[in-house]
């Protein structure tokens, strides 16, 4: 048995990332759906205010990477289980790699390049720490 075969690493990754994701997602849901106004309180000011804090930047980027890799690896298992035609399976697996990579790059850029106080936006939509006007 090869100790570090891809499928074995994937098997270990699903258990380790799953365990971490439980803590991350339960926190994410508590802060975004339970606290204060729940889903109704989510707007630009809320998200920009959170992402101005390095703690939430690293929290969200960890959540983004682990959730997308855990989810797409799960989909890889499902595709391998049900899609028997080689061409279709290859197309779906390639789509998974492309969409996962795209979303990880996009999400990481959004988290680290978001300007919480964009110039020219109505100040009542911005976090309270933004300079008025």
């Amino acid at each position: 048995m090869k100790l570090f075969r891809f499928d074995r690493l994937a098997w270990i990754f699903m258990r380790v990332s799953g365990f971490i994701l439980i803590a991350l997602i339960f926190t994410h849901l508590t802060v975004n759906l339970m606290q204060d106004g729940g889903v109704k309180a989510i707007d630009f000011a809320f998200v920009a205010g959170k992402l101005a804090n390095p703690f939430w930047q690293w929290f969200d980027v960890t959540l983004l990477w682990l959730a997308l890799i855990h989810g797409s690896n799960g989909m890889r298992v499902v595709v391998n289980d049900y899609v028997e035609r080689t061409g279709v399976r290859r197309f779906l697996l390639a789509s998974l790699v492309i969409s996962t990579t795209t979303l990880i790059v996009l999400g990481t850029l959004v988290i680290f390049t978001l300007d919480p106080c964009p110039v020219g936006s109505p100040s009542d939509l911005l976090p309270s720490f933004c300079p008025a006007g």
């Binding site: 630009f44 998200v47 920009a48 992402l51 999400g107 850029l109 959004v110 936006s121 109505p122 939509l125």
Partner: peptide, 9 residues
């Protein structure tokens, strides 16, 4: 969530 980077409105 990515639209948060484009425009608050």
């Amino acid at each position: 969530t990515a639209t948060v980077r484009l425009d608050p409105e």
